[in-house]
Simulated assay, not measured.
Amino acid sequence: MIYIVPKPTDTPDDNSTGQVIHELEKAGAAYRILDLDDVDPLKSGLAHEVIWACGIRQNGHHFETLNVLSLENRVVNTPESIVTCACKVMTSALLIRHGVPTPTTLFTSSPDRAHAFIGEYGKAVYKPLYGFDGNGIRLVTDGGDLGEPPWYLQEYVWNDRDFRVFVIDGEAVGAIERVSDSLTHNIHQGGIGRPVEIDEEMRSVTEAAATAIGIDYCGVDLLRDGDGYTVLEVNGTPNWHCMAAPIPRLLAAFLMEKEREMRA
């Protein structure tokens, strides 16, 4: 049995969970919807099952419930990797540790360090620690624009587009280019996406990023940096808007494979 935690942000017109369920049904796979708000993880009765969290609410109850369920079940993605992706500082730390290209980054509560960083680069990109969908990201050119500490700042890499690459089980399987006139090219912020081919460097960088995080599947966001790519972030509950690759079918196949492994 595959237990499915639906993405809270699904809508009738944008139903990520439903797309994968459709593929599971076509394949004859058994599944059941799991409502984390209605589960006592200490008495769930679930053991040796596959649980797919298409998305969770950013609250302690959902995370802790999923975390406890992961003790006796195979949770995709793991709670640890979802939280790592949600925390930009930890994501940056793992990318740096594993030698994955990423913009120069500063995390600090020191005004002096923050002002020096902005002065060195002339401008910096401020990002909320736990933001999503491009919300709250802005360009700062003066320390007085920072607001309250702590601050997560990245060097500004000029661009007119970015890329999202979908990685499943360590393999890059689909990519889009997102273009907009704004600082962020996220589709939720008005970006326009179209499918693109995955070149070899894009493949190498995104697969290395997924490995560094230790995640089953993800969306890796990239910018061109000179002749190569640099990783902006890794998304643990990604959408696959505009991708030509059959992501729902590939995700369904991955879940069925994990379920077979549990039964072996």
Rank of each mutant, 00 (worst) to 15 (best):
V76G: 06
K7D: 09
P101K: 05
H61L: 11
A172F: 02
E80V: 08
V68F: 00
E23S: 13
P248C: 00
I4E: 06
F117W: 03
E120W: 10
I33W: 02
H61P: 00
V234L: 13
N59Q: 04
L24R: 05
Y156I: 13
I198Y: 01
T65D: 06
T237A: 15
M202Q: 00
H98I: 08
T102Y: 15
D199I: 00
P238D: 03
W52S: 07
G122E: 14
V100F: 03
A245F: 03
R249E: 14
G143V: 12
T105P: 03
G134D: 10
D225E: 14
V231T: 02
N159V: 02
G55T: 01
L36W: 01
G144C: 09
E200R: 00
S16A: 08
G131R: 06
P246W: 01
T206W: 00
L146E: 09
V173W: 03
I21A: 05
T104G: 13
I213V: 15
G219R: 06
S44F: 07
N235Y: 06
T91F: 12
I215P: 03
L95W: 05
T9A: 15
T211I: 09
L69P: 05
R57F: 11
S70G: 10
G190F: 06
A93Q: 01
G60T: 04
H241K: 11
L71H: 13
A264R: 06
G147I: 12
Y126C: 14
D181M: 15
T17M: 03
A253K: 13
V231R: 04
D160W: 14
E201K: 01
D199W: 04
G143K: 04
T141P: 04
N67S: 15
Y130I: 07
P195Q: 13
D225Y: 15
M262D: 08
Y229E: 02
L129Y: 09
E177M: 05
A53R: 09
V205D: 00
P101R: 03
G99Y: 00
D35L: 10
E197H: 03
A86F: 06
L42H: 11
A47T: 10
S182H: 14
D225S: 13
G226C: 01
E201G: 00
E177G: 00
P79I: 01
P150Y: 07
Y130C: 15
L232F: 09
V179D: 02
H61F: 11
Y152I: 04
E257G: 03
T230F: 14
E80Q: 15
I2R: 12
R113H: 09
V83Q: 08
N77Y: 07
G136Q: 07
E261R: 11
A116S: 15
E177R: 08
H115C: 13
K7P: 01
R97M: 05
K127N: 10
P149C: 11
G144D: 08
D199G: 01
L71R: 07
M1H: 12
P246L: 11
S70P: 02
D133P: 02
N239K: 07
I56N: 05
E155F: 12
G190A: 05
I187G: 03
G170V: 04
P103N: 14
A245C: 04
S70W: 03
R203M: 00
E233R: 09
M90N: 05
D142N: 15
L42M: 10
G136F: 02
G191S: 06
P101F: 01
E72M: 11
V231N: 11
P149W: 12
